[in-house]
Amino acid sequence: MSGAVRGALAKARYYVREFSGEAAYDRYVAHARSHDPQAEVLTRRAFERARTDAREADPREGFRCC
């Protein structure tokens, strides 16, 4: 695979991960580990649940029934 194609695929992967929110967990783990390497981090499932709960509790987001 040429370098240009590989670079384009890497950029596309980056934008898809950012757009979908998948990279948020990776950023959370990196942040938690940089502040306290011994700290217990949430599992991906618990992180996503907390993230969803926080988003739904935010009054600026509006009411969501589903």
Rank of each mutant, 00 (worst) to 15 (best):
M1L: 15
M1T: 14
S2C: 15
S2H: 14
A4G: 13
V5L: 12
L9H: 14
L9S: 15
L9Y: 15
L9A: 14
A10D: 06
K11P: 00
R13L: 06
R13T: 07
Y14S: 13
Y15F: 15
V16W: 04
R17F: 05
F19A: 15
S20E: 14
G21A: 12
G21N: 12
A23L: 14
A23W: 08
Y25I: 05
Y25W: 13
R27G: 03
R27M: 04
R27C: 04
R27A: 09
Y28N: 06
V29Q: 03
A30T: 00
A30R: 03
A30L: 00
A32D: 02
R33C: 00
R33W: 02
S34H: 09
H35K: 05
H35G: 03
H35C: 01
H35Q: 04
P37T: 06
P37A: 07
P37V: 03
E40H: 10
V41K: 01
T43Q: 13
T43H: 14
R45D: 12
A46F: 06
F47S: 01
E48C: 09
R49L: 04
R49C: 01
A50Y: 10
A50N: 13
R51D: 03
R51P: 05
T52M: 02
T52D: 02
D53P: 00
A54Y: 06
A54T: 08
E56V: 09
A57Q: 07
D58V: 00
D58P: 00
P59F: 08
R60M: 00
R60K: 02
R60P: 00
F63A: 04
R64C: 03
R64G: 01
C65E: 07
C66K: 07
C66I: 07
